[in-house]
Amino acid sequence: MGKVIVVTSGKGGVGKTTSSAALGAALARNGEKVVVVDFDVGLRNLDLIMGAERRVVYDLINVIQGEAKLAQALIRDKRLETLYLLPASQTRDKDNLTAEGVETVIAALKQSFDWVICDSPAGIERGATLAMRHADVAIVVTNPEVSSVRDSDRIIGLLDSKTLMAEQGERMEKHLLLTRYDPARAERGDMLKVDDVLEILSIPLLGIVPESMDVLRASNVGSPVTLSDERSAPAIAYFDAARRLRGELLPVTIPGEKRGFFGKLFGRKAA
């Protein structure tokens, strides 16, 4: 039975889609079967970031509406044969995304994949709540900036109340992925510190992804950054995050600083 991960944030444009693709590819590189599901109905972009935009045959809504079988809607990555994409619909209305439909699709995906990664849309509406609903694990993508941290806090509240796990009285495993971290601005003291963000949100740190041109280049050529440029700083950060998702204990390094972050990370009791 596979693990379902939701990549969420509340705030838009913080790096959810970039992270979903990069982590999906990093996990699939190990031979594990991964599917990345785009929940952004009407504004799909995961297909473009993964370079599969010309090969979309069916989408999530087609499957939910019974117009296509799940197997027919899955697109296999051209580079990694254990990596798949389930695209969102570009033309259909969000209302077609039903709770029962999503439940059936996720249940079926869990049967045949090791990891089901749900790329959430921004906001706290239907698309976002359905993307998180069946998750076992949540990755909260946050930028070191006030409005992003505030929205992440809001999302953490929803993860603890509006998900199936929460309703069953269980506590969802939540991880913070700090993205677009700029060492130069951190150095000048104009950016929230990693420690500050961790203290405010009090969920364990999965990784810190630096702000990087490599992410832009990867999106230009349509490849997850972990495949296009695996030695780049953001790719290394995503590979390490993927290892932590698998349960490995690895120290987190703050970009631009030499010391590891091991003690602090695991010393703090996660809420």
């Binding site: 473009l48 370079g51 935009e53 010309r54 570009q90 033309t91 259909r92 832009l216 280049r217 999106s219 230009n220 050529v221 349509g222």
Partner: peptide
């Protein structure tokens, strides 16, 4: 230095949008 990536982005967008624009409804 590595080859520029912007031309690839431009070409991909042109093809994708050309297809999306002629689509009527679905």
């Amino acid at each position: 230095s590595r080859p520029q990536s912007a031309p690839a982005a431009r070409e991909r967008l042109q093809v994708l949008l050309a297809h999306e624009r002629v689509a009527v409804g679905d």
